[in-house]
Amino acid sequence: MIATSDFKKGRKILFRDEPYMVIDFAHVKPGKGGAYVRTKMKNMITGLMREETFRSGEKFEDPGLEYKDMQFLYNEDMLYHFMDLDSFEQVSLNKNQLEEALDYLKEQEIYNALYFKGKLITINAPMFMELKVVDAPPGVRGNTAQGGGTKTIKLETGLVLQAPLFIEEGDILKIDTRTNEYIERI
């Protein structure tokens, strides 16, 4: 059981028979009456945000989420095909189920799949990925006051982001998938 005193950002709870992730919370102790916890949660199946207030000490069940490694195989007719690395079973997902990992789909790469009650609910990209630059305009150093400017580049998965001026087409970059930021050139 997970009590409201155990809440922290990223904590997963079972609320109304669905898995939720705590995005933000605040313990409130008014001068009069009992303490309570105001939370902002995200439904892990639908992706909808919800704000709820709970009595202090209220308890919730653990959602019993299961994590599995899945390999991305290919994309065909708006379906994305993955293979479970343990059972070799293939699963097809649509664009809506992949919203967070869509910009990072690369064939033969391993992704983390999240299951709730035996049903696949989402796929998450690894924390860091190495991706090839397919389009990088030449950097013009004179456009910056300090010399540490950035330019817009395009990666092999279609992701567009800001990178330093010295990045060229064909470079392999390490990208943080949580923030969509350039980390280093490899």
Rank of each mutant, 00 (worst) to 15 (best):
M1T: 08
T4P: 06
D6I: 03
F7T: 06
K8D: 13
K9L: 03
K9S: 13
K9D: 12
G10K: 08
G10T: 04
K12N: 08
I13R: 08
R16K: 14
D17A: 11
P19Q: 10
Y20N: 05
V22M: 12
F25Y: 15
K29P: 02
K32R: 14
V37I: 15
V37A: 06
V37G: 04
I45W: 03
I45E: 12
G47C: 10
L48V: 03
E51C: 13
E52Q: 14
F54I: 14
R55P: 06
F60R: 15
P63R: 10
P63G: 12
G64D: 09
E66P: 08
K68V: 05
M70G: 07
Q71S: 05
Q71E: 12
Q71D: 04
F72I: 05
M78P: 01
Y80D: 11
Y80L: 08
H81V: 14
F82A: 09
F82D: 12
M83C: 10
D84S: 06
D86V: 01
D86S: 12
F88H: 13
F88Q: 13
E89I: 09
E89F: 13
Q90H: 13
V91Q: 10
V91T: 15
S92P: 07
K95L: 07
K95R: 10
N96H: 07
L98P: 06
L98T: 05
E100Y: 11
A101P: 01
D103K: 15
Y104Q: 03
L105S: 10
L105P: 11
Q108A: 03
Q108F: 04
Y111V: 10
K117I: 00
K117W: 03
K117R: 15
K117E: 11
G118L: 11
G118K: 11
K119E: 12
F128N: 00
E130A: 01
K132F: 01
V134E: 04
V134M: 05
P138D: 00
G139K: 09
V140N: 05
A145N: 08
G149A: 06
T150E: 13
I153M: 02
T157F: 02
G158S: 10
G158W: 14
L159E: 02
P164A: 01
F166N: 13
F166H: 09
I167M: 06
E168N: 13
E168A: 15
D171W: 00
R178E: 00
T179H: 00
E181R: 11
I186S: 01
